[in-house]
Design a protein around this nucleic acid. Structure first.
Lengths: 251, 251
DNA sequence: CATGTCAACATTTTCGAAAATCTCTTTCCG
DNA sequence: CGGAAAGAGATTTTCGAAAATGTTGACATG
């Protein structure tokens, strides 16, 4: 046993997406995380060119770590790299948003089915507390719709809730894709903050989904989740028209 | 119209995974592709440390492009990066293989449904020719099971066939995930070449799936595809036991 | 004998400058 | 006037060396 090659003894998990909480020890990693946040939160505009000189000043690093950070974020699609032409913040593309939303619907449905079949006790506990935290943040936001920090807190907890739903499925690859897709979705949702009041709080839907999951009712949970995504997609498609009209009028 | 901000006018698509055919113009990109192939084809061993000095000689590049290449491949999970400790070829983990396989089954089923609903004429044509090419390669391989090049050709066409199945769905994100997952799957499949005769050629299954797709019979296609994956999973799980017994005996 | 500390070494990470590539303007010719 | 060619300028990409970090083994200590 003791002489088995090390590829068999390593504990498994893709260890891809760096966990949101743990800070990387290298400059490149830190810059990558800052970049991600700056893009998701629209501190960097969609379509904006990312020049090394400017970013070097902004993040106070040399070209090497900056370059590595850009590649990390580019692999995720939040920036696009063109050979010898540099990097650009990924543009806003409503068709892509729909694609992301549909794929999320599929993946999370798959995940919740797995979680309901295999999820253990701590999955239930985490899910329950994630929902509670989301609910409280929802109440806070509806009290003051314009507070950036409250909305950001809500976003974080919303992500945590959906993540908690999926977590029980025990598929690291799925959770990795979840993270990548959710980053994009959050960016799109934040994009609409500028153009419209917050989409109707869907916490009752979240609660229904959670209850179905805790009841281990696979079909009900799947149906509710699909409906949840479809409703969100409808709402954002309406906003899309609004935004495009506004953009057309401005020209 | 002409003054619309550029994020609306860009044509859409995530443009993530660099297309397999088009060669990157930067050193880093080229090295990344070579690295991918070397890992998938086991020219670099699972678990092997990737030291800059050695890789610098191997690929004849400096540290900067090498580092960028490693990050690109690390984002895909074929190598894992540890801060200040360097890079390692992703280990072989059978649990992960099962995860990848299950996720592929789900994603490709989702894709084939979309393709059957929305796929256009050229999708059908591409699918048909991809199958034909796969079939021919299968015949060639069964004639000489030990020819590396023939098997590699078969692998390429097998990927192309599954890709052609999914392509009609028109979801760039799904196709991106497909590429990432398939790279891992191919690596695992090649891993078994060393330990076992090739898994039974499943070209009759491929043909049945293709026909169902061309008949636009969504349910039949989905069922056949699921069965296809389940059968492959069973086969590889058997091989897994064999490999693990061999590894245990060797120690 | 086990445990902790320190120094020397190996390796990764970062920096700053040189080389390569692209872009934009100007110029020249049909 | 239109379009190709050329050159200046801006930007990205690459290299090689310096700085930072992790690792190993010897030595001292409980």
């Amino acid at each position: 046993m003791r002489n088995m090659p090390k590829q068999f003894t390593r504990k498994w998990g893709p260890s891809l997406h760096p966990s949101r909480d743990e800070a990387p020890k290298t400059l490149a990693g830190r810059v990558a995380q800052q970049l991600r946040l700056d893009i998701i939160r629209h501190h960097l505009e969609p379509g904006e060119r990312l020049q090394f000189e400017k970013l070097s000043k902004r993040y106070e690093v040399g070209t090497s770590p900056l370059r590595e950070a850009l590649f990390q974020v580019a692999a995720q699609g939040l920036v696009v790299a063109e050979d010898h032409k540099g990097f650009v913040v990924a543009p806003i593309q409503f068709d892509e948003m729909l694609d992301v939303s549909n794929l999320r619907a599929n993946l999370e449905t798959y995940a919740i089915r797995g979680a309901i079949q295999e999820g253990r006790e701590d999955w239930e506990v985490d899910l329950l507390s994630a929902f509670h935290r989301l609910k409280l943040a929802g109440i806070a936001v509806s009290a003051d719709q314009d507070d950036e920090d409250l909305r950001t807190e809500w976003e974080d907890r919303h992500r945590a809730f959906h993540y908690a739903l999926c977590k029980g499925c025990g598929s690291p690859w799925l959770l990795h894709f979840f993270d990548e897709l959710y980053d994009h979705m959050e960016r799109y949702r934040r994009y609409f903050w500028k153009y419209a009041e917050r989409a109707v709080a869907a916490d009752n839907e979240h609660e229904a989904i959670m209850k179905a999951a805790l009841d281990r009712d696979e079909e009900r949970a799947a149906t509710l989740l699909q409906a949840h995504f479809q409703k969100q997609a409808r709402l954002t498609m309406n906003l899309r028209k609004k935004v495009e009209r506004a953009a057309a009028a401005a020209s």
